[in-house]
Design a protein around this nucleic acid. Structure first.
Lengths: 227, 227
DNA sequence: ACAAAAGTGTTTCGGCTACACCCATGC
DNA sequence: GCATGGGTGTAGCCGAAACACTTTTGT
């Protein structure tokens, strides 16, 4: 045990990361084969132990880096899971974090080395312990966030069309949005900048590419889209 | 250490409770004199250690009960605080919870025994460690919740006037609401039931008392009030 | 009579929704 | 020519906000 003047029970502390990515018009999740007992070989979220001298946030960022090679990614606490028997190997408190990353930018070899794979959100298999519940909580948080600020900077490529952005939102919210209204709403936020080149792969006419303006979004009083 | 097949660092685990109450048209907070070293005697949130076989939720409920005598109160996770040096006495991870209670219903003697006191939210003194930050986080969560569902069941007396409810909301959001519009909006939610007696203490004309209908509120798509 | 809160009504304004409709182009 | 997505326009509806106004009664 670490240096402490307290005489009270202590607990193992873990972080589990719900890593969202976006590819082929689908919201995906990075999951891995657990490589230590118990439940070795079963599907699991990417996780790790918190070290003696780091915050849970730092641990989550470290775990994300170790498996994807990506740094400085926005991550957010989702929930603390603390059922005494949630982990078959002992008493472990776990703090869940979610992240959104660009699949085209991460280190695929590193992911493969770790035996991790991208799964479509809808087709996630049974995960160990309470990890499926963590995914649900994280998906709710993601919808919450996406409803109040325009996300996509960390999920879409550097330049993208409004259609791609709308398809991302449709994947997140699992519902359709009216193309015209979505466009008008999104552009009214003034957080996107139109580029001069067009995407001609997805439509005959060609659609302008956009990118995020390099300026932090202020807090939105009202929803961008509804659930 | 508890039984475990893992060989990793372990941590002290605490819960800290941000207990909101409402009295004299003011939102108040229950804080206490810390009764063990370090920082003994300084102002602190009500907190406690998580026991070996309970969840953090159970620990928070137990702590709330021990100091107020109240059970079955809605509590919600606020945030995990894990800075390595946040607690002067050792490495302690703390999960913050908030609760709303009826000041007129709790056990005042029990609170006094523990050296705890109600303070107006605006006048909270310096608290130990990161507790002031916890209060801010909890206040944000409270505003979030109050913006999306009508709260007050656990803060107001069993019957109350629309004025009392509005004053509560004004205390939470630290801003004024238009009396007519607030009334119409709140009543349109159909979660209050008008009683037959009137409050004649606060107005000459007399205002009908209302109470919450005994039915859970469904999730609100839009805000009730804005920040 | 006056003040103060209760309660209702009204008008304006802006945003969301559901469309219709033209544009550009590859097939 | 036709289908497909790009992009713009518009009519209707609804709710928020601002505020006028009437009611009631204690002082």
């Amino acid at each position: 045990m670490i240096n402490s003047q307290y005489n009270y029970p202590t607990f193992h502390l873990a972080v589990d990361c719900i890593i969202f990515g976006y590819e082929e018009d689908e919201l995906k999740l990075l999951i891995t084969h657990r490589n230590f007992p118990p439940a070795q070989g079963e599907w699991s979220l990417v996780g790790g132990w918190v070290s003696e001298n780091e915050t849970v946030e730092a641990a989550a960022a470290r775990v994300l880096f170790q498996i994807t090679g990506l740094k400085d990614i926005f991550m957010e606490q989702v929930f603390v899971f603390s059922e005494p028997d949630r982990d078959l190997g002992g008493r472990v408190i776990s703090v869940a974090f979610y992240a959104m990353i660009r699949i085209d930018k991460h280190d695929r070899d590193l992911v493969n080395e770790h035996g991790a794979e991208w799964w479509t959100l809808k087709e996630i298999p049974n995960l160990i312990f309470d990890h499926n519940s963590m995914v649900e909580h994280a998906h709710e948080k993601l919808k919450q966030k996406a409803g109040y600020e325009l996300i996509g900077k960390n999920l879409l490529p550097g330049k993208f069309t409004i259609l791609q952005l709308r398809t991302l939102y449709e994947a997140i919210f699992q519902r359709k949005f009216d193309p015209g209204n979505f466009r008008k709403k999104i552009l009214s936020l003034k957080v996107l900048e139109r580029l001069n080149d067009k995407n001609t792969a997805d439509s005959k006419k060609g659609a302008f590419y956009y990118r995020f303006i390099n300026r932090p979004q202020e807090f939105m009083q009202d929803r961008i889209v509804r659930q």
